[in-house]
Amino acid sequence: MKEFDDIRDDQIRVIGYTKSKWVPSSNLKRYLISAIIIIVLGILIVVLVKIRQSTLYEPEPALFEPEVAYITSEPVDKGWIGSEIDSTAAGFTEIVDTTINDIPLRIYIPHNAQMTLHLGKLDKSDPEIIFAAQAADVRADNGGIVGAFVLKGEQKSRGLAKRGYCAIIDDKISIGVAENTPLFEESTAKGGYFFRQYPLVDNGLLVDNEPKGKSIRRAICDRKGEILVVESLTQESFHDFAQVLVDLGVDNAIYLVGSNAFGWAVSEDGTHHKFGDENILKGRRGLPKNTSYVVWRKRPPYKIK
């Protein structure tokens, strides 16, 4: 499979040739065609001679026709946690509850939906939203966003407070761990999204973090190309939560705001499953204006350009 992804944007490849830039010249083509014709003619002559010889000793006809073997395409099993969904179905969030290492988990898998970031108050009644959870941390002293943050190509915050990152560029979600990543510049150049959070899993390996307390933990994860949000249903340390993600088979994961941070998921039957504390919005000061969210909205039907 890797060979099919092994192509750069400045390369082309005729399907069937795994080596990129392979462009047969017309002379080479002629030689190839001539060689193939000669080989085929040779094989035909040999086969004809054999047939003539074998007709002298032709066996009795078989009582039953030999069975015909049919080759059918097997469904492709990508080993994802979420179900395969009809591509024409409306967007929703699949919710899977499981337990790993005695830690109960809830896994949210958005289907047929498009992920973006949102900054500021989020409309809970928006029928297009099928999943929302708080993304970047907000500074307690001045209410600023912690770490670099790009919203639709506009840089809202800069800095490297946390090494984990999530970028959404041309609808492709990238989660990883790096102090410097070109995805930050690319997200500003291409109208994308970018935020930073604590790294939890880096290429299948656990990443330890400083904070040692226990809390409800949430993370956005990439597992074999499937994007998931995982929530611990009990209070856990960063280390134990990251270990659970590793055991779940996650390749890359970064933290999302945990504890009582409010969010919700809309399941296939339209039910809103809320998490965190909804009333946190009703406090005297309300949420900081720089509160940010990862948001999945129902994917719009595709139109011809």
Binding site: D5, I7, R8, D9, D10, I12, R13, V14, I15, D170
Partner: peptide
């Protein structure tokens, strides 16, 4: 018949 199709970069066939 697969030769009818050409992969162009990372995002197009």
């Amino acid at each position: 018949e697969r030769n009818t199709f050409i992969r162009i970069g990372k995002s197009l066939i």
